[in-house]
Amino acid sequence: MAHDTHIQVRSQAEFEYAKKKRADEMKGHLATFAIMIFLTLIAFTMVAAGFSTYLIVPIILLLAGIQVILQLYYFMHMSGKGHGMVAFFMFCGMFVAFITVLALVTIVWW
């Protein structure tokens, strides 16, 4: 049946190890979250400080890109095993997304 699975038989040591690994991973997620907050603060501060537009725009777009990669690879576990097809889907989606934005913007701006 579709919901069938094995019951994993694990020793106490294996169970403790898996639990500790998850706890370590959670600490990593907290660090990721701190980085995301930091990147957001930089982006808002730069705009509030009134730097040149030509400086701000590429930097805040880069910060957004980094933040999205952190979300995808850590919070959404795309770095984990068995995410090959997932990465294929997402990169295809991003490629089409990039072409779409590029096409509409160039049509209008040039």
Binding site: M90, V96, A97, F98, T100, V101, V105
Partner: peptide
Amino acid sequence: ETVTFASLFATYLA
């Protein structure tokens, strides 16, 4: 959904 939002972002930017 990424593509859906990309088309909306592109429209907005334009």
